[in-house]
């Protein structure tokens, strides 16, 4: 199946997952679907039948609130039954809003307090280097998350340690809970910031598969530096009503009758 078609399924399942509890972080889930599908369906060395495989590539979704999109991807890859997607945030669930490595099969690191997952990914990349296992450590950080000081502590040290096995994405949808990032606390010039921190930087359209592939190839070819792929994305990508909500889509109600309409639109695209 083409990645475009897989993305439609992941978007549909993410919407259903959040609808199962009626409200959730839909905007920042839909913005990273092409990135997740590219990683899990093309680039990552993983085995869903052996989720703890030594030396596997790992993903730390540091913007932990995008859990539902990661869960939809993991379920479709066969890490767990898709029916479980409809238990998001229900009492006793294995799928909490924010990624939890001790609850969900396939989640490589617990995240939710912003900034910390990125540092954990740096630690994982260091450990992989010590093990000399050749793994690539992928991480996705949010743009709002990049206002956390810990992001820059981790960024500085990843360059110092020459972690060229660390490939990071910034989900640059330019929105956060309280408004547009430029109105709250602008990240610009984001590419220059990362360059000045000693990173290899690639700026792409985060919904374009070819650009994602090229950026990962570029990252793997770059020796001695970690890579930051600044992925320009649209928060709520794929459903016009959600996109039009702007930063209001960070967390919003998702009712089944609306989700049916969203799914029709996703399938038509």
């Amino acid at each position: 199946m083409q990645r475009e078609e897989i993305c439609k399924i992941i978007r549909e399942d993410t919407c259903k997952c959040i609808a199962s509890i009626g409200v959730g972080h839909i905007g920042g889930c839909l913005s990273i679907v092409e990135i997740l599908v590219s990683l899990y369906y093309k680039h990552m060395n993983i085995d869903p039948t052996n989720p703890h495989m030594a030396g596997r590539d790992r993903l730390v979704c540091s913007k932990g609130h995008a859990g539902p999109a990661v869960y939809a991807t993991l379920a479709n890859k066969g890490y767990f039954d898709k029916a479980e997607l409809l238990t998001l945030n229900h009492s006793g669930t294995n799928l909490p809003s924010h990624c939890d490595m001790n609850k969900t099969i396939g989640i490589d690191m617990t995240t939710g307090s912003l900034g910390q997952g990125f540092s954990c990914a740096v630690g994982i990349a260091l450990a992989s280097k010590l093990d000399k296992d050749g793994a690539y450590i992928y991480t996705v950080i949010g743009d709002g998350e990049s206002q956390e000081g810990q992001i820059w502590e981790a960024g500085m040290f990843a360059a110092q340690a020459k972690l060229d096995n660390l490939i990071a994405f910034t989900d640059y949808n330019k929105m956060q809970i309280d408004g547009n990032t430029d109105d709250v606390n602008s990240l610009e010039p984001l590419n220059k910031k990362w360059e000045s921190f000693g990173w290899n930087v690639v700026v792409i359209d985060g919904h374009d598969f070819d650009q994602i592939d090229d950026a990962i190839a570029n990252a793997k070819a770059c020796k001695g530096k970690p890579t930051m792929i600044i992925a320009n994305t649209i928060k709520g990508k794929g459903v016009k009503y959600i996109e039009d909500k702007g930063y209001g889509n960070h967390s919003m109600p998702m009712l089944w009758e609306d989700v049916e309409k969203y799914i029709e639109e996703i399938r038509r695209a």
Binding site: M101, C120, V122, I124, L126, A127, Q150
Partner: peptide, 9 residues
């Protein structure tokens, strides 16, 4: 957090 990431490995 780096230490915690290393612990996960």
């Amino acid at each position: 957090s780096i230490a915690s990431g290393m612990a996960s490995y």
